[in-house]
Nucleic acid binder design. Structure first.
Lengths: 355, 355
DNA sequence: CTGTTAGCGCCTTCAA
DNA sequence: TTGAAGGCGCTAACAG
């Protein structure tokens, strides 16, 4: 089984009767190639089925045709291991792979542990090995200056998903404040006045934004935010369970809960039954994320849907274009979110929730 | 923002006071390096934070440190687009990425359309661009000779997930026949005698295996397979809906259904309500795959769980080891499946299902 | 407009 | 046990 020699640019050059460089120019859509020569070269490429080697292009030239995405290791592995899946990764692949493929790029994933003291070493190792043309950061890395500084020092362009903070890199995000406001308004419009909020992990930059959206929606109706209705959370199922257990035992329990993640919303949902609360009869529930499971839950959850695929596609595009043009415009890109009303929200029962 | 020059093997050599070649030997665990020199070099590597460039290694040497996985384009995109997620990809990432990382490898995904007449060109293009050290094939590609022949011609080693057919490449699979038998026996043990089977897509090699397992389990109890209980399917939700609509209208409808995919099982489940059938009261349902959603469905589904992560990890290991040792042992690797009993199965109601 | 000349960073082969 | 020379396939910078 002798490996048949791969065909290289040299073969194409010979076939077309031109120099290597001319072939290279055609491949890279370089200027200064006659129509005729160009077609001759293209014919040779097609005939031989030539595809340039990524490794060689990277070594010789200044581009690697690689986009590298860093995701947080722990939650990602946890999602896979528990077989709950991983909507972020799925949607990033969907948006990113396709966009990269359009431009002859590949997207690679790398997991790094945001809590490790080796974080920077991990990131640098991946950069050194791969030399990507651009990097996509996800929360909570998007706002981690250890990483952004490192990328900047390496002269890399990068996109920060889910972050709208100032700083290096493209910020590609949705309006978390507006999303939380929208969800809260939906509950207010249904007639709820006692609305609780189970917050996201404080490490994540969007958490205060969402809280602001929640608060502003309530205050805009002349109501006040009940401090006891603000429950801490860390995005996990258990946090949702715990939160509802606290909330339901208040003297005046809420009639609706907004949770900052699907997991927490499901925790709330599943904690409701044992507490004698029906959803949405006694309690309306709204979640953030709209991962696959919330459509299968009973009742299906009303949810904010993040545009993860679109953000990733935009990020990939910005990086590829930016690399090609050598520009460093660190602008902001705000993408619209969706709000999907399902069965978990309804008007409050007259007289409020029963304990 | 001048890109700081990357540190190369040259810097390490200078730092350690040895030649390039010696550093290369240390990196690659080559023979003939004194203990002392080795430690000196390692110290230099750590000090400088040196990580070899994948592209350069691939170009100079014979390895690319890349494993390439081909998935079928249409179902994969469909899963992402519908936001149902994609358990196969998730579990492949889980098993494959981690195993690859252990060995300094990366895993890349490529989508190719099994129904395209460009299939071979798509595959060849990816191979030419990436020059992977090994390839992982998933159903239905695992049994597609257009692809396996192409890989063989390219002198590549590869693993075929979910295939136990003879031929080139490592076959890494679970025993689909035994799994179907196990699921069927579970229903028989509960007392069911009228069991239907919604089959998988005939293009997939495991489909006849599963049918055999189903049939043999029934016949082993001295029962006969009712031809009308064998419904065609293609793994989709709609196929499950259609199948139950046919089955429920038979003169003697089944009391249990085994479906060859989660999607189809969910289709069956959701078609049951409108037909006045309760699950598991009137109808027991067992599914194949155990993707995340079937645990959130109501009732949660009893299911066969494929060891996708384990298969991918095994495949990656075989490829990496095989590449290192230059061997071409095309053996078989049978991995165990799980069977998870949940709420969708129960003894048949006395007197059988009501129409 | 096209061709020539150097490398990119590493591994392979050979010599010492 | 170590080092030096060559080249992998491509692109950048320069000639022509």
């Amino acid at each position: 089984m002798q490996k048949k020699r791969a065909i290289t640019i040299k073969d194409v050059a010979a076939e077309a009767g031109v120099s290597l460089q001319t072939v290279s120019r055609v491949i890279n859509k370089g200027p200064n190639v006659t129509q005729g020569v160009q077609e001759r070269v293209k014919a040779a490429i097609d005939k031989l089925g030539y595809v340039p080697s990524l490794a060689a292009r990277r070594l010789g030239g200044s581009r690697s045709y690689l986009v590298l995405a860093f995701n947080d290791e722990r939650p990602t592995l946890e999602g896979w291991q528990s077989r709950r899946g991983n909507d972020w990764v799925d949607q990033m692949l969907y948006g990113g792979m396709l966009k990269c493929a359009e431009h002859g790029y590949r997207m690679l994933f790398e997991l790094v542990d945001s809590h490790s003291d080796q974080l920077e070493a991990q990131v640098q190792a991946a950069l050194s090995a791969l030399h990507p043309d651009g990097v996509i950061l996800t929360p909570p890395h998007s706002d981690d200056t250890r990483i952004t500084d490192l990328l900047h020092r390496n002269g890399l362009i990068f996109a920060r998903l889910g972050s709208h903070r100032e700083g290096e890199g493209f910020a590609v995000y949705m309006d978390d404040e507006a999303a939380a406001r929208r969800a809260t308004e939906h509950l207010l419009d249904l007639g709820h006045t006692r609305i609780a909020y189970v917050q996201g992990h404080p490490e994540y930059a969007m958490s205060p934004d969402r809280l602001r959206g929640f608060t502003s929606a309530i205050e805009a109706r002349g109501l006040e935010v009940e401090p006891a209705y603000l429950q801490p959370g860390d995005f996990t199922y258990e946090a949702g369970v715990d939160a509802l257990n606290v909330l339901a035992r208040l003297d005046v329990p809420p009639t609706a809960v907004l949770a900052s993640s699907d997991e927490m919303a499901l925790g709330v949902l599943h904690a409701a039954g044992p507490l004698g609360l029906s959803v949405p009869g006694d309690l309306s529930v709204v979640s953030f994320d709209d991962t696959p499971t919330v459509r299968m839950s009973v009742p299906a959850l009303t949810a904010i849907r993040q545009p993860i695929a679109a953000m990733t596609a935009r990020a990939a595009e910005l990086l590829i274009q930016g690399k090609a043009r050598g520009e460093v415009a660190n602008d902001h890109h705000l993408l619209p979110f969706d709000f999907v009303v399902r069965e978990s929200t309804a008007p409050p029962r007259a007289g409020g929730a029963r304990r």
